[in-house]
Design a protein around this nucleic acid. Structure first.
Lengths: 212, 212
DNA sequence: TGTACATCAGTGAACGCGCGTTCACTGATGTAC
DNA sequence: TGTACATCAGTGAACGCGCGTTCACTGATGTAC
């Protein structure tokens, strides 16, 4: 373990800029999580060290370490949502509903593979804060609700309005499967996995019945 | 936090019965995990307290706390395998291949729901030990290999021998989906889940193409 | 049958460490007059 | 334009805690003679 960060310095924020530190703390916690690969590494003193401040300074912005983790998770869900939205935007309006659905699913899997530690923490059971993915309809106040909404939309793409419940069900089973895939890819890398895209396509094809 | 366990006593094992303590340590660690709901609760001193011995006594049986966790995980995989095998036995030979497959999947999900903390730790990324579910073919030396083998058999039930690769693929996507379902049920209880059996049946029906 | 002794299955005290949390404080920065 | 002062954004020292790990030890149990 390298102690380089111990000597890190930082100039004090000016008056009225105290809120900057809050962002730095969350960023440091995120960095600590992704780099060490363990949620346990997110410790009040560890985060303070990473930011370059003393431990008590954290209390000005967070009540405890759980609040920091929840902020990390909140940011991660926002980032996931943006990633899914961007994937849809990249497809444009000319793409088929199938292509758009694949793009969303791929973006979801990519996010999980690129930030495996954050993804894992996002779907841990949390003691505090709103539960992730708590509502199928877009519920901006609930973590992951909007991301799930994008998935529902993509699944329901060309579905008739009467089939909305159908889209929610399809999105749920698809979410479950992709989440399982992402989790196991991370947890059991030694398993003889097929090509990632192949398995993802198989899941989509089988779980989302063609509407033709 | 109750400290009742601090006063727990235990009579020393007789000569040659030192190995009994090993089992007690693993059992205590399992208990600690399921009751507190956190892997962090499995601590060398905590386990010793739970067993009723002093901390240094653990070193006679395990090198470190990771080794204890690996033993807990090993036992859990054995238990999972037995649960799946029992489910198949209960079905008998007269049942249809579909019924047998459903029984295995249901047993898997039941295990995860009844021991959520253990299940979670089974599929964490572990630093040491063999990786879980590392081989599709029955590989007794690999954690979960036999359990996966049972799933492959159940999926391949009435398949012709030429379709073995098919069965492995089907079992993989099914495992991925059921694992995702089990994980999310635990992590996001607030999500408006459909009836557990309904979603499980949907997954099986869609992911394992009928062989008729 | 008795007894010395090796060994087994642990104990008890001690250590250094990083942690969360508290408390009084400090020094730069703006603001009122 | 100058200056006293409140406030902001933190600091530095200290505390008690549970942890992993070490070390010398102890007392019951079996065994050799």
């Amino acid at each position: 373990v390298v102690k380089v960060s111990r000597t890190r310095r930082r100039t004090q924020n000016r008056r009225g800029e105290g809120e900057k530190l809050r962002g730095d703390i969350v960023a440091a916690a995120t960095e600590l999580l992704e780099e060490t690969g363990s949620e346990d590494a997110i410790t009040l003193r560890g985060v303070a060290r990473q930011v370059g401040i003393t431990a008590p300074s954290v209390y000005g912005h967070f009540d405890n370490v759980d609040a920091i983790v929840m902020a990390v998770v909140g940011d991660a869900f926002e980032e996931l949502e943006v990633a899914l939205a961007d994937a849809l935007d990249d497809q444009g309006d000319t793409s088929s509903a199938e292509a758009r659905l694949r793009a969303v699913c791929r973006a979801y899997l990519d996010f999980a593979r690129e930030s495996p530690q954050r993804y894992r923490v996002m779907f841990r059971r949390h003691r505090t804060g709103p539960n992730a993915m708590s509502a199928p309809r877009p519920a901006p106040d609930l973590l992951g609700g909007r991301a799930f909404g994008l998935l529902v939309d993509a699944v329901g793409g060309s579905a008739d309005p009467g089939g909305l419940g159908h889209a929610v069900t399809d999105a749920t089973v698809l979410w479950v499967a992709i989440h399982g895939y992402a989790s196991l890819l991370d947890a059991v890398p030694a398993f003889p996995w097929p090509e990632p895209d192949d398995l993802l396509d198989t899941l989509i094809q089988r779980l989302v019945p063609r509407r033709t």
